[in-house]
Amino acid sequence: MTSGLSVSTLAYSYGSKDALKGVSFDLPKGQFCALLGPNGAGKSTLVSLLTRLLVSPGGTIQVAGHDLRRTPGPALGRLGVVFQQPTLDLDLTVRQNLAYFAALHGLPRKGLASRIDAALARLNMAERAGEKVRALNGGHRRRTELARSLLHEPEVLLLDEPTVGLDAASRAGIVGHVHDLADQGLCVLWTTHLTDEVRDTDRLLVLHEGNILADGITGDIRGVSNLSEWFLDKTETAL
């Protein structure tokens, strides 16, 4: 398997409360993996650990073959992230936001302008490059964040409930685009609690109360039932 994102026996607790209880999974490149879990399942903790906002005392995380704990620089350099919270600077333009991010990632200034143009063009945001983020609607802001997360050509893309607060058209647009990215070879981990964002051919991880409840291809997992019903049934019976 070509290495994408690999997580092994990852555990984390806040005091005496266990948020993750030994989670393991392997995602190859070119796969769209949906991480489905109800509120409080441990999704946010997992995202914080994957982005190194938290460090777990046990377990390992490898991003494109780089251990996040031992070599955080190369690992973070290969990871693209779209956070659940908006992380754009509202008073800066779209282009300035992307340039700031590029600098944070140590990208060379030479060729940066065309790199930004290309990233924005991919998401049909080219004509908005000079606008202040404050003037953009929610869908465009998310697209800007997605364009930004791809600027350093990561091998693994992590999106934490990226469609929260978007209208149906914007949601569908982003879901479709990220699937295309996976088809082009990116390893994608998409966390959500909305079952309609998951396709039958996607890899599915179900997280519940800090454990992986199911791991496989969505169509196989849900069988004859509809994913939403299956998910409710599983997470309710496990309560």
Binding site: R52, A75, V81, Q84, P86, F101, L104, G106
Partner: peptide, 18 residues
């Protein structure tokens, strides 16, 4: 609280430098 700190801290450069 707003999230932009997350962006800063996911930079591959060492945190003390940031």
């Amino acid at each position: 609280e707003m999230g932009s700190m997350r962006l800063l801290l996911t930079s591959p450069l060492p945190r003390w430098w940031l």
